[in-house]
Amino acid sequence: MQAEQLRVLVTKIGFDGHDRGSRVVAAYLRDAGMEVIYTPPWQQVGAVVSLAIQEDVDVIGISSLATDHLIIPDLMEALRAADLGHVGVVVGGIVPEIECQALRDAGVALIFGPGASREDIVSQVAKLGTDGRKTKLTSGEFAV
């Protein structure tokens, strides 16, 4: 049987407009065969949640070069409230070392800094997505 294609949301929340990293990463993931739902910067937390639901994504990637990562705990809360706890969240960009732990505590699975390699990003996002997929509804469950 055909394998289900991985679907990844690459987006930015808050006021930071540095979008180069998110574009680069979207292209990395596309070139690795994934379907990437890409948005411009300045998304609101609520919009990210409904996008993740409607697009049935396996991974949510947030790019943050300024201080937007500080909103991520709110996003994690909103995702759990919408029953999306199974969707892996990764953050990339500039996150000061001392703030990484707070993000991990909030449930962020992976953090990538400047210079993160294409190989690392692709392989780790793929693994996270494939793992998360296992908890989703299957064809069999629609048959009963």
């Binding site: 294609q5 979207a26 292209a27 993931l29 596309r30 070139d31 690795a32 065969g33 994934m34 379907e35 990437v36 739902i37 890409y38 948005t39 411009p40 998304q43 919009a47 996008l51 697009e55």
Partner: peptide, 14 residues
């Protein structure tokens, strides 16, 4: 070539 895609239409429907 890769089967991948960047899906951007909904960007305009934000």
């Amino acid at each position: 070539l890769t089967g991948g895609a960047v899906l951007g239409d909904r960007t305009r429907m934000g």
